[in-house]
Design a protein around this nucleic acid. Sequence first.
RNA 1: GGUUCCUUGGCCGAGUGGCUAGGCACCGGUCUGCAAAACCGUCUACGGCGGUUCGAAUCCGCCAGGAACCUCCA
Length: 526
Amino acid sequence: MAISTIVPKAFKITLKTLKIRFFILLLLPQKSTRMIAQQLLIYNTLTRKKEVFKPIHSPHVGMYVCGPTVYGDAHLGHARPAITFDILFRYLTHLGYKVRYVRNITDVGHLENDADSGEDKIAKKARVEELEPMEVVQYYLNRYHKSMEELNVLPPSIEPHASGHIIEQIQFIQEILDHGYAYESNGSVYFDVEKYNKDYHYGKLSGRNIEDMLNSTRQLDGQEEKHNGVDFALWKKASPEHIMRWPSPWSEGFPGWHLECSAMGTKYLGQEFDIHGGGMDLMFPHHECEIAQSVAALGKESVHYWMHNNMITINGQKMGKSLGNFITLDELFTGTHKLLEQAYSPMTIRFFILQAHYRSTLDFSNEALQASEKGLQRLYDAFSKLNKLQPAKTSENIDVTGLKDKCYEAMNDDLNTPIVISHLFDAARAINSIAAGNGSISGNDLSELKAVYKLFFNDILGVKSGEMMDSSNNEAYKKAIDLLLDMRQEAKQRKDWATSDNIRNQLTAFGFEIKDTKDGFEWKLN
RNA sequence: GGUUCCUUGGCCGAGUGGCUAGGCACCGGUCUGCAAAACCGUCUACGGCGGUUCGAAUCCGCCAGGAACCUCCA
C-alpha cells in the first residue's frame, strides 16, 4: 500500500526534475559550446607534444594535482604548481567546463628513504617537535591555506588527505597483488617492477628503460626485502617505535607514498580522468609509479594528459627543501630572509611566476622580482586610468577585439601567460596614450576593454587589482593627505617652492607618490 | 655513468624557418617652477664552429657550459 503511493509521487518528482534538468541542458550547451569552441592546446608530458584538449566526458573535466607534504612552511617553489594549475582551473572553468579539481594533502607515507628504517616525514617532525603527528599536519596545512589565499589561488574542489584514505589504498594494493604485480615480503608489500615491465613499459613517462635503472639504482640498507632494487613500496610494515600505523592484511604499517595519488585520484575522478599535474621533479619516480599502479590494478592508464610545471631556481639551482636554499612565502611577503632586499606582495609573487611560461625554469633574484613589482604597478596604474577615460566617437589607437583574440590565442597555446601579459602591457600603453591626449576610444570599445581587462587580468590570471586591495584606506586618512597637498598647492601659488617641496619630499619619504596634474594633484601610497 | 632538457640584449623572459614579444634598467626628447608619472624615441640579442636552405635564434651535427631526474623534493 505504502509503496504504491510513494512510487508515483517519486516518479512525478523525478519527471519534474528531469524537465528542469532538460531545460537547463538546453541553455547550457549553447553557452558552453560557444566557449568550449576555443581549441585549447596543452603539452602532454606522455607524448612530449602539445595536444588538443578533449575531455573524456565533456563538459566535465577531472583534474588531479599533487599537493604539498605538510611538514614545513610552503616556499616559493610550492607556489609554482599551485598558481600554474590555478590558472588552468580558472581558464577551463571560464571556457564553460565543469571542473572537478582534486589537490591532495600528503600527511603520511613519505619515507625519508627507501630503507627499512625509513621514517615518515610527518612522524619525524612530530618527534622532533614533540607533537602529535596530526598536530603538525594541521599547523602547516593552516599556514599553507593562508599563503594560498594570499596568492589568490582558488581552493580546489576536493582536498583529500592521504591519512583519510588508508582503506582505499589497502584495496588498491590488494588489486595489484591479485593481478600478480606485487609481492609480500616480511609484512611489507612491494611493486614488482620487473614483472610489470615484461607486460608494459615502466618508464614511459620519463623516458627511461628498466635496464638502465637496474644498473644505476643505489644500494640502500634494508633492501634485502625487495626482489629488485627498482621495486617500490606499496605497504611498509611499521617498526615498533613508528607512530603512524594502520592495520592491514599484511602488517600494522603505512602505505607507500606513490599510492595515495592513484587511490584518491581514481576515487574522486573515476578510473580514467583527464589531467594530472605536478612538479617536474615528481615525474620520476612518483608519477611513473602512479601509472604502473593504475595499470596493474585497473588494467588501464588512468590519466590522459600529464602536465608538469618546471622548477624555480636560485643562483641557477633548484630551490628545494633538501638543498635548504628555499625562501618561504611568508618570508617573501614580509621580507624577512637574508637574501631578500625588501618584502614582495603576494600579487608581485604571482605576477612574477606568470611572467614565465610554466614549463620553463624561473630564476629567483631581487632584481627580477623588483622588475615584476614595477611592471605590475604599471598595469595597475594603467587600468585605474582606464576607469577614468572619457569615451569618444571613434577608437583611434586601440583594437580591443584584436586584443581579446590575441589573449585567447595565447592562453590556448599551452597557457602562455607571459604572452597574455605582454598584450596587457600593449593595452596599458594605449590607455596611457589616450589618457595623455594622444588618441581616443569609443564608448563600446571602452566598456569592452574594461571587460577584457577584468576577464584576463583579474579572472583568468587571478591578479587582484589595486582597488581590491585598497580596502584598508579610510576617508579620514585620505582627507588628511588631501589637506597637506592643498597646503602645498597654496605654497606653489605663492611660488614658495621651499614649503611645497618640503611637503612633497616628506610625503615621498613616507612612501607616497605625488603627481602634479593640470588642475591639481594626484597621490597614492606605494 | 644513464635519462631528459636548457644556453636569447645590462637583468628577467616570450618566440620553433622569413613578420625578428613584453617588462625592468639605461640614455635622449616632450610635459613640469623643479620633480614624479605618462608619452615619444634610441640601443636590438639569440653560447661557439660547421651543415641544410633562396633565407636559421628557430632544423641537423660537433664542441663548450649549465640544470633536473636516477634517494626525499612542487
